[in-house]
Computed example of a mutant assay.
Amino acid sequence: MKKFLVGLFISAILIACNNEKPAEQKDESSAVPVPEAKMQPVEFADPKYMEMGKNALAALSKGDVAGWMNGYADNAVFQWNNLDSAVGKAAITDYWTKRRTESIDSITFTNMIFLPVKVNQPQSIEQPGVWLLGWYTVNAKYKKTGKRMIQLLHTDIHFNSSDQIDRVIMYIDRVPVNAAMK
């Protein structure tokens, strides 16, 4: 019993010595300065832009040029990788209306991949703001020849602060297009 009481006494002393109050404990994490969150040059943007891209392509597939153009700003620029371009919503609408009514019998887009990104700090010549990067397969049948053109496309779409498209850059190989039109 004596050993038990001695053991209990020693245990009580050890517990008392090691039982510091939480307020008296040192918070070592506060001693280390927390770095401020640094803005990343590029970050993911809202997934709603992916739906906007899919809806626009669906409208163009149906021949609904007005639906295709619905999200465009009045001052939009549509540029191709060969540096040709259409400037202004009216000019872009005229171009696509003519293509869909006179040249393209049908057009579909498959294997779509969209990546919405927000450019906070441009790394080159790109505009800051939201970009929707799109990759997909286009399958177009031409009216005059009945031939098909199938190829992979890459498109960069920039949105202004009102979520309207103000710049499109389409990377397309004109060789298959020209062959299908001959």
Results as ranks from 00 to 15, higher is better:
residue 97 T to R: 04
residue 95 Y to R: 06
residue 137 T to I: 08
residue 159 F to V: 04
residue 136 Y to C: 11
residue 173 D to Q: 06
residue 116 P to F: 01
residue 105 D to T: 06
residue 19 N to T: 12
residue 79 Q to T: 11
residue 22 P to N: 04
residue 102 E to G: 07
residue 17 C to V: 15
residue 105 D to E: 10
residue 86 A to L: 09
residue 142 Y to R: 03
residue 182 K to I: 08
residue 144 K to A: 12
residue 89 K to T: 07
residue 29 S to Y: 15
residue 44 F to Q: 15
residue 126 E to D: 13
residue 151 Q to D: 03
residue 84 D to A: 10
residue 105 D to M: 05
residue 123 Q to C: 12
residue 90 A to F: 08
residue 81 N to V: 09
residue 174 R to Q: 12
residue 134 G to Y: 04
residue 30 S to P: 11
residue 90 A to Q: 09
residue 7 G to H: 00
residue 114 F to D: 07
residue 96 W to L: 03
residue 82 N to T: 03
residue 128 P to K: 07
residue 116 P to Q: 03
residue 94 D to E: 13
residue 132 L to I: 03
residue 124 S to M: 13
residue 111 N to S: 12
residue 72 Y to N: 02
residue 101 T to R: 06
residue 71 G to H: 00
residue 116 P to D: 02
residue 153 L to W: 08
residue 168 V to S: 00
residue 23 A to F: 13
residue 132 L to C: 06
residue 24 E to L: 10
residue 57 L to D: 00
residue 86 A to S: 13
residue 92 I to W: 01
residue 147 K to G: 06
residue 30 S to D: 09
residue 145 T to W: 00
residue 158 H to W: 06
residue 120 N to D: 06
residue 46 D to S: 09
residue 93 T to A: 12
residue 170 M to R: 09
residue 84 D to Q: 15
residue 77 V to T: 09
residue 39 M to H: 14
residue 112 M to L: 15
residue 85 S to V: 04
residue 124 S to Q: 12
residue 114 F to A: 12
residue 49 Y to F: 10
residue 128 P to I: 10
residue 69 M to I: 02
residue 139 N to A: 11
residue 118 K to R: 12
residue 43 E to C: 08
residue 42 V to L: 07
residue 139 N to G: 11
residue 32 V to M: 08
residue 73 A to L: 00
residue 34 V to W: 11
residue 78 F to L: 04
residue 137 T to R: 07
residue 26 K to D: 12
residue 95 Y to F: 14
residue 163 D to K: 02
residue 116 P to W: 01
residue 103 S to N: 13
residue 97 T to D: 06
residue 74 D to G: 05
residue 35 P to F: 11
residue 85 S to K: 13
residue 156 D to Q: 09
residue 106 S to C: 09
residue 146 G to Y: 05
